[in-house]
């Protein structure tokens, strides 16, 4: 597991880069934040505390309340659900029957994978609960995983080496979305 601050920066960076950050930032502000976060992740530059605080201020105080890792691997699924309800005006269980919402819900929540190959800047990984294989970008400065490692990922990015124990909420969320999609 990596430094919590690096994990938080990688978590936000991956959302920003995937175009899914709903904070209403314009392109320039988003890029500026991404550069700050990436410099910290890659080169151990100064932690962009002020920008993180501003970002959190626009979001909620949940990270402060529960701890970064606890939030990312547990609380965030509830936030994804509430944002989808807010954005679609539908119950979550109905909203995820729509393919684009299904994709958004599943990709926005943290996913867990088993690493099947390791490249210089990306890994190929098999989703623990669906078997779906995909490539995940590995940001320089993060811990490089090995074949067979269980890792977490957010959108198109690898986050950190993890374990099956940590994936309990992810499994429950995935099973719920799957059941509702198929009903």
């Amino acid at each position: 597991m990596i430094d919590e601050r690096k994990l938080l920066c990688a978590f936000i960076y991956s959302a920003y880069d995937s175009g899914y950050c709903g904070l209403g930032l314009d392109d320039a502000a988003r890029k500026e934040d991404m550069n700050l976060f990436k410099r910290f992740i890659e080169f151990g530059g100064e932690y962009p505390e002020e920008r993180i605080r501003e970002t959190q201020g626009k979001m909620t105080s949940e990270v402060d309340n529960s701890g970064i890792r606890d939030y990312i691997y547990r609380g965030h699924y509830e936030v994804v659900e509430s944002r989808i309800v807010e954005a679609t005006g539908k119950d979550f269980d109905d909203a995820v029957k729509e393919p684009m919402i299904l994709h958004t819900a599943l990709s926005c929540g943290i996913n867990f994978y088993e690493v099947v190959s390791v490249g210089e800047q990306e890994i190929k990984a098999r989703h623990l609960f669906s078997g779906l294989e995909r490539n995940l970008v590995v940001l320089q400065g993060l811990q490089i995983p090995s074949l067979g490692d269980i890792v977490s990922g957010h959108w198109n990015y690898y986050l950190e080496i993890s374990d099956v124990e940590q994936s309990k909420s992810a499994r429950e969320f995935f099973e719920r979305v799957k059941a509702n999609f198929k009903s």
Partner: peptide, 27 residues
């Protein structure tokens, strides 16, 4: 696409959407 601050931000990767659909529909 996704939109941020009134600006078109990113095109959604439809292959990823199709990937999720395929595994869930066949599961």
């Amino acid at each position: 696409v996704t939109v941020a601050a009134g600006v078109v931000s990113e095109k959604v990767d439809e292959a990823q959407v199709a990937g999720w659909l395929k595994v869930l529909e066949n599961d």
